Computed example of a mutant assay.
Amino acid sequence: MPWANALMAAPSWRLGSTPAVPGAPPPVDSRAVRLPRLSWPLSPVPVVTKYFDAPETPYGAGHRGVDLAAVPGQEVLAADAGVVVFAGVVAGRPVMSVDHDGGLRTTYEPVQPSVAVGEQVYRGQVLGTVLAGHPGCAVAACLHWGVRRGDEYIDPLALTVEDGEYRLKPWGGGP
């Protein structure tokens, strides 16, 4: 196949990337940036009532966060240190967003805020309280918790570390 020879003859840098300049540092793949570990926004560690479901397209269907079982009035905690960048209503629901180092933004809803936009918050600080009325919540109240880096939604559970014991499970993947 003629195209196979073209691929084999391609330079050592990745196709579609900028070739290395002698003496310059290698390009950084933004997807390879190590993301911080986040703490749970509710205490004690809550039950997940609905899991993350990444959309196939930017405007496609999906669930861009997780829903956590809560009780109305339960304190919502900052998942990491950051700055409150939004506290208001979106589509009729009270939402809060906090920007963190590494380009992450966490979002919490429905929340009655106790902090103001522009306020610096620390990990574990009370941001507000959970309100009842999250659509599709099967318990008294649910906190929808989302994480985004730029335009990419990330599963919050992939960034969360629970205190306690960890066990490795067998993996049936490749060699």
Rank of each mutant, 00 (worst) to 15 (best):
3 W>H: 11
8 M>F: 15
9 A>L: 15
12 S>F: 15
17 S>V: 06
21 V>S: 08
23 G>C: 03
25 P>D: 13
26 P>F: 14
27 P>K: 03
27 P>I: 13
31 R>C: 03
33 V>Q: 11
33 V>R: 03
34 R>Q: 12
40 W>Y: 10
41 P>W: 14
44 P>C: 06
46 P>Q: 07
49 T>Q: 03
58 P>Y: 13
58 P>G: 07
59 Y>C: 05
61 A>P: 11
61 A>R: 13
61 A>D: 13
65 G>I: 02
67 D>N: 00
68 L>D: 04
69 A>D: 02
70 A>L: 03
76 V>M: 06
81 A>P: 00
82 G>Y: 14
82 G>M: 09
83 V>Q: 14
85 V>F: 13
87 A>P: 00
88 G>F: 05
90 V>D: 03
92 G>E: 10
95 V>H: 01
95 V>C: 07
104 L>M: 01
113 P>T: 14
113 P>V: 15
121 V>N: 09
121 V>T: 04
121 V>Q: 06
124 G>I: 00
124 G>W: 00
126 V>M: 03
131 L>M: 15
131 L>E: 15
131 L>W: 10
135 P>E: 14
140 A>C: 02
143 L>G: 04
143 L>T: 07
144 H>P: 00
154 I>E: 08
156 P>K: 05
157 L>V: 08
158 A>L: 14
159 L>M: 00
162 E>F: 11
163 D>F: 01
164 G>V: 02
170 P>V: 10
174 G>D: 12
